[in-house]
Nucleic acid binder design. Structure first.
Lengths: 136, 136
DNA sequence: ATGTTATCCTATAAAATTAGTAGGCTTTTA
DNA sequence: TAAAAGCCTACTAATTTTATAGGATAACAT
């Protein structure tokens, strides 16, 4: 399951996607409208910024904006930044790989199945974008 | 990500699958051969038993055995018993549904995408079985 | 220059979940 | 009736998640 933080991140990002091309949006505005704890949201947006998904501007008239078009921001990328691995096991993770203890990767059947599951999930999450999350 | 407990469960179940039709297997045997903490494994096997996935027998010559063929035990079922929901959000879970706060399910774009992801993942996990996890 | 507005940064704390242990109870078999 | 096994309840430790607090820094307006 995705953490609450990740849910918040998606809600905030959709909000920003709806303001793409417009003036930057303040944390406090997103916090109120999306009902996300302000200080927690601060961290979330900062994480996304560090991953170059957002741009920010300080001072009056400042705030956050998407640094790329909603159509070019896929869901897998967001999840990896905020939530971590998408795969069900570390040993089948593309971005957060860790070797299993006591398991031969060549023959491990658990791993083999989790690889297939991962590919199925990723196929969706890498194709779908923030734009797909916005209301038509 | 699946919990360590779920990884242990899969290892134990594959072990039992390889002994399907034979004598029951003792917890201690599985614990040693699969390198799973014995007392922890006790809980795991008990959970699986309560879900009617395993049968047990006490006393000498006792132990655990699968109550159905490995070909009829799909991975989604195991994950739900030990790990919980497969869906990425509670509001798209078939077996552990919970309503999101502050979200209209009809229009929520996040939910819509998570539904698609869930279906893709489930399609694999419900089709693949313990048998598929065993070595050919 | 200086105050205001906003993000940025670091530390801390509370709550929840996960992982594991301990120890005695019950059932089956020899 | 003793042994060998699972069964049951409670507890503890570690880790992760979900925040909160408070000041530092940057941009802008007057």
């Amino acid at each position: 399951m995705l953490s609450k933080k990740t849910q918040y991140a998606f809600r905030a990002l959709v909000h920003l996607a709806e303001n793409y091309g417009k003036e930057p949006v303040k944390i406090s505005t997103i916090s109120i409208q999306q009902k996300i704890p302000l200080k927690f949201l601060e961290h979330i947006l900062n994480d996304l910024k560090k991953a170059d998904m957002l741009e920010s501007k300080k001072g009056k008239g400042g705030g956050y904006r998407l640094s790329v078009s909603p159509k070019n921001l896929n869901l897998a990328t967001v999840i990896r930044i905020i939530n971590g691995p998408i795969a069900l096991l570390p040993c089948v993770s593309l971005n957060f790989y860790e070797k299993c203890v006591d398991c031969d990767e060549e023959t491990c059947g658990v791993r083999k199945m989790m690889l297939i599951a991962r590919d199925a999930t990723l196929k969706v999450l890498e194709k779908k974008t923030l734009y797909d999350m916005m209301n038509e």
